[in-house]
Amino acid sequence: MGRGRGPGRWVARAIVTAYLVLLVAWPLWLVAQHTIADGLDGLRGIVDDPDVVHALRLTVVVAVVSVVLNTVFGVGISLLVVRYAFPGKRLLNALLDVPLSVSPIVVGLALVLVYGGRSGWFGPALESAGLQVIFSTPGIILATTFVALPLVIREVVPVLEEIGTEQEQAAQSLGATAAQTFRRITLPAIRWGVTYGVVLSLARSLGEFGAVKVVSGNVLGETRTATLVVEEKYLNFDQGGAYATAFLLALVAVACIVVVSIIRPKEGPR
């Protein structure tokens, strides 16, 4: 790499830039271009369509609920993994990466096997108790939460490891309870890890498709989420609607990441 000098550095930069442009920036830009090519009619069209509005609202509700779940459990699991030694810790650690490595469609099928209303493990029992999971909102939330599970954990664990336990021990010796120590010391120390994890989870949750497609049943106006709308419209040759919806989804996700990288403080000397 030319040790930071000479033409080698510029070649390396050009390659990386070209790679990212061809793979990420340009395709995303084209989606935006397609959306606004015919003015704002495409966007107006989907906003006026009650089914699309319902799908967008469902997506937001699902994303918010699963982000809340993943944040609470993610921070808890991170503390468990970093702060405590217990048998099976390595196994748990490996298990936490499963949602990232298994195809979402497999996740969806697996959830149907467990929670399916007719033949799943829990499904019939839950259904007789009045809670339908599969082909309903709880199932969509479950699938989305599963898929985005590791994102908060993978952001928080390294921060927890870096800050160590001394600040927490100092707080305890000064009289703080476990809850006070967490709220006043641990949480402020990991807040940027949590924030970044939340943003990544939110972006991932808004865009989940495969697992949701299997468990939702894709019922128009009821369990159809925004990503399913994109597919439906695309397959029905309504390219304008598909691109407009896709554009909205991408816009929110990109906006989240941009906002966070702007407000995130620069890594200062410690």
Partner: peptide, 20 residues
Amino acid sequence: LPARKRGVGFVFQHYAAFKH
């Protein structure tokens, strides 16, 4: 007794300052 009830002050080698 847990640390917080012992009435001891503890100073660490690496200060353990609350950075925020």
